[in-house]
Design a protein around this nucleic acid. Structure first.
Length: 512
RNA sequence: GCGGGUGUAGCUCAGUGGUAGAGCGUCACGUUGCCAACGUGAAUGUCGUCGGUUCGAAUCCGAUCACCCGCUCCA
C-alpha cells in the first residue's frame, strides 16, 4: 500500500511511474536485483544528465552564474576529473580507513554499540551458585570486575575464563549480558563495519597486499590534486575545484528507492580561500546553493536550508548546512540533497602530513604563506534526481493520465513534442519539418518527440506522464495561416502561435 | 543488523492443491479528428529463485533473493 508522505504523494505510485515510463529500473532485475543498486532508463538518464549539466553549467562554467563573491569578485571554479581508485594511503589520510574498520557489537535492547575487541566477557561457575555466570565490560579484568562490582560482591575471586567477546562461540554469546543495560542474549555477533568497497589491483593481485578502495567521495581526488592545479593553472586564491563522478559506499542499510544507494554520483566543489575569508565564503556558498536548487524547480516548504547544531558538527568544521528535501518517505522530516561545510584546513593538512607534500599557498602580494581553508558544497546527483521526480509527480484526476510530471522545462527529459493532428492531408510533412528544425536546435538539451499515431488526446496524455512541457500540433489551419497549437502541460491549456515563433518560444522557456 | 509486510504480464491486481487470468497500457487495421474516444484483432508470463511435500504446487512447507514500512546506521 502506498505510504502518503507530507507532500501528499505515494512513493509506491512514484516508483511505479518511474518503472512504467522508463525513468528508473532495479539493477540486475532479471537476476532478482541487487541490494542498493539502481539503473536509469532512457528518460531517467536524460533527467540525470540535465541535472548534472545544469550543475556544470551554473557552478563550473559560469562561476555561480555570474553571482559576485563576498568581496564583489567573480567566482572561479576549475573542473577536475579524478580516479575512482587512488592510492589507499589517500583514505588513510582522509580518515576513511581506520575508525570504522573494527568489528562492532550492537545491543538489540538498548541500542548501544561496542568495539568487539574491547568488549570482555568474564565467565564464572561459583560453587555457591552451581551454574555458569557471565559478566561483561570493557578493559582489563579489574575494570570488568569493577563494572559488575555489585553482582560480584558475594561470588569470590575464582573465574573460569576472561576473554574477548570475539573469541566466544555463538552459543555462549546468547548468555552474555549487555554491559550497559544488562539484558542477556541481546548482543549481536561481532560485525565488520567497513563502508568502503575494496578491490584488488592487478590480475595476479593479492587480496590483502594489493588491496585498494573504490572512493567513498570525490572530494579527496580534489584535495590531492590541489598543488597540481595551483602549479599548472594560472590561478590565485580564492578559487574552487569541482567535478562530478561516481562514488561507492557499503551502506549498512540501503533504503528508500535510490536515496541511499551503494553506487551513486556526486557533484562536489572544494572552494579554497584565506582562513580569514572562510566564513564569508561559507555563507556565500550556503545561500547560493539553496537558491540554485530552487531555480531548477524545488520550491516551497518541501525544500529547506538547515544549519547544523554545534553538537552535529565534525570536529574540524566550524559551520555546516544541509539543503534538504522533504521526500514522501522522510515526511514530515527531510533528507539531505547537499551539504555545505566549512572544513577549515583539515583535509589539506591531513594530506600534507601523510604524504609529506607541501600543501601551502604563497600569496606574493601579502608575502604570506598558509594552508588554505576550504568550503565544500557536496551534492548528491541521484538524490537530486529523486527529489525532482518526487516534486514533479502531480496527481490530477481531471486529466486522462491521472498524473503528470511537472518538471522544470530545463530539467525535462523530453523538451517538446510535435504532432500532426491527423496522419494525412499534408500535415505529417509539415510536422516532420518542424520536428527536424527543433531537433537541430534543441536536440542537445533533450528529446524532441514526434508521433502521428492514435488520437491526439492519447499523445498528450503520454507526454503528461513523461513530463514533456510543450506539445505543438499541426492542423488544417496551419496550412492556411501558418499557426500551430501550443499545448501547455501544466495547465492543459492551448494557444495558437505562429509556427516560425515556435523555436523562439521554446528557447525562452528552456533557458531556466 | 532487528522486527513487520509484499513478490503472478510493462503497470495495478484477482486467482487457497487440478488447463495462467482481468483492467489499463503496448502493437496492427478501420473509423474519427484537439485531450488515454469507438470497433476489430494481436503480442506479452523462469507465478522472484532454489529445494521439499504431493499423482499433481502460483496455491502447502523450508531456505534464499529483492523491494516497502518501523527501529538502527549514515564515518
Amino acid at each position: 500500500m502506498g505510504e502518503v508522505g507530507g507532500a501528499g504523494k505515494s512513493m509506491d505510485d512514484i516508483m511505479s511511474l518511474c518503472k512504467r515510463r522508463g525513468f528508473i529500473y532495479q539493477a540486475s532485475e532479471i537476476y532478482g536485483g541487487i541490494n542498493g543498486f539502481w539503473d536509469y532508463g532512457p528518460l531517467g538518464t536524460l533527467l540525470k544528465k540535465n541535472l548534472r549539466d545544469a550543475w556544470w553549467q551554473d557552478v563550473i562554467m559560469t562561476g555561480c552564474r555570474g553571482r559576485k563573491g563576498p568581496g564583489g569578485q567573480a567566482v572561479r571554479v576549475l573542473p577536475l576529473d579524478t580516479c575512482i581508485i587512488q592510492n589507499p594511503k589517500v583514505w588513510e589520510a582522509s580518515g576513511h580507513v581506520g575508525g570504522f574498520n573494527d568489528p562492532m557489537v550492537d545491543c538489540r535492547a538498548c541500542k548501544s554499540r561496542f568495539r568487539a575487541d574491547h568488549l570482555m566477557v568474564l565467565h564464572m561457575r561459583p560453587a555457591s551458585v552451581g551454574k555458569d555466570l557471565y559478566f561483561s565490560g570493557m578493559g582489563t579484568l579489574e575494570d570488568v570486575r569493577a563494572h559488575n562490582a555489585k553482582k560480584l560482591k558475594n561470588l569470590g575471586e575464582e573465574h573460569e575464563s576472561f576473554e574477548e567477546y570475539t573469541k566466544i562461540n555463538e552459543a555462549t554469546r546468547a548468555l552474555v549480558p549487555c554491559p550497559d543495560c544488562g539484558k542477556v542474549g541481546e548482543l549481536t555477533a561481532p560485525r565488520q563495519f567497513n563502508l568502503m568497497f575494496s578491490t584488488t589491483i592487478g590480475a595476479l593481485g593479492d587480496p590483502e597486499k594489493d588491496k585498494a578502495y573504490l572512493r567513498p567521495e570525490t572530494a579527496q581526488g580534489i584535495f590531492i590534486n590541489f598543488k597540481n592545479v595551483v602549479d599548472t593553472v594560472r590561478v590565485k586564491l580564492p578559487f574552487g575545484i569541482g567535478g562530478s563522478g561516481k562514488s561507492f559506499r557499503n551502506e549498512v542499510t540501503p533504503r528508500n528507492f535510490t536515496f541511499r544507494s551503494r553506487e551513486f554520483e556526486q557533484m562536489e566543489v572544494e572552494f579554497f580561500c584565506h582562513p580569514d575569508e572562510a566564513h564569508d565564503w561559507y555563507v556565500f556558498w550556503r545561500d547560493w546553493r539553496m537558491a540554485w536548487w530552487e531555480s531548477i524547480g524545488l520550491k516551497g516548504e518541501n525544500l529547506i536550508l538547515r544549519e547544523h547544531d554545534a553538537d552535529e558538527l565534525s570536529h574540524y568544521s566550524s559551520g555546516t548546512s544541509d539543503v534538504e528535501y522533504r521526500f514522501p518517505f522522510t515526511a514530515p522530516g527531510y533528507g539531505e540533497l547537499e551539504g555545505i561545510a566549512n572544513r577549515g584546513c583539515y583535509d589539506l593538512t591531513q594530506h600534507q602530513e601523510h604524504s609529506g607534500a607541501k600543501m601551502e599557498y604563497f600569496d606574493q602580494e601579502k608575502n604570506e604563506r598558509f594552508v588554505p581553508h576550504c568550503i565544500e558544497p557536496a551534492a548528491g546527483l541521484d538524490r537530486g534526481v529523486l527529489a525532482l521526480l518526487c516534486e514533479a509527480y502531480t496527481p490530477d484526476e481531471s486529466r486522462p493520465s491521472k498524473v503528470f510530471m511537472k518538471f522544470h522545462p530545463r530539467m525535462a527529459p523530453i523538451k517538446a513534442a510535435v504532432y500532426p493532428l491527423v496522419n494525412k492531408d499534408g500535415l505529417p510533412e509539415i510536422a516532420e519539418k518542424l520536428h527536424g528544425e527543433l531537433v537541430a536546435r534543441f536536440g542537445h538539451l533533450g528529446m524532441i518527440e514526434y508521433d502521428a499515431k492514435q488520437n491526439i488526446g492519447k499523445r498528450y496524455a503520454r507526454m503528461d506522464e513523461a513530463g514533456c512541457p510543450y506539445c505543438f500540433t499541426i492542423d488544417s489551419d496551419t496550412l492556411t495561416d501558418g499557426t500551430v497549437t501550443m499545448r501547455d502541460r501544466d495547465t492543459a491549456s492551448q494557444e495558437r502561435i505562429a509556427m516560425d515563433k515556435v523555436a523562439g518560444f521554446l528557447a525562452e522557456k528552456l533557458a531556466g
